[in-house]
Amino acid sequence: MSASDITQYFDYIFMAMLLCIGIAVIRLRNLFAVVMLTGAYSLISAAWFVSLDAVDVGFTEAAVGAGISTVLLLGAMLLTSREADKTSLGRHAAAAVVTIAAGAGLFYALGDMPVYGDAASPANTGVGMEYVDLTAEQIVIPNVVTAVLASYRGFDTMGEVFVVFAAGLGVALLIGLGGSKREED
């Protein structure tokens, strides 16, 4: 390896934990355990995001993935069922074939990925790094991520806000907002 960083050693720990949880999620049939493990999975990936210098993303993942989506999955589980049925062997075989085919394709393309942690890789030399320099001159706020999010890519973020709104509207149309149902009863 040409370059290295202390955070690489954290990577191995997080990778091992994520793989263990992922395999446990596949094997378990109790949905309560599956949902709680998903929360743990989100929390560990949030820790990995922080170790990869993406502090904003880690914060968001910890709040959203480990917090809100666990609550939502628990609520949905309470309204549906608590135990998944056993799956047939044929289905496992089909899943294995599809997964291995998709994985083999991605592993074939692995050599084309930029080297991990390389400052000179194409992904890290273009517009992304220009934002770091431009933020200090034009926006003059310390957090570059906020500057790019709200100013340089403000139109993009507006679209995201409308997507979140549309999702809230979709849930309201599907199962109501829960406000008026009890009054009717």
């Binding site: 809100i68 609550v71 939502l72 609520g75 949905a76 309204l79 979140v164 709104f165 999702a167 809230g168 849930v171 309201a172 199962i175 109501g176 907002l177 829960g178 406000g179 149902k181 009890r182």
Partner: peptide, 12 residues
Amino acid sequence: VMIAIFYAFAGR
């Protein structure tokens, strides 16, 4: 949106 989604699920 987050509160509305939570109310929607919890209200059932």
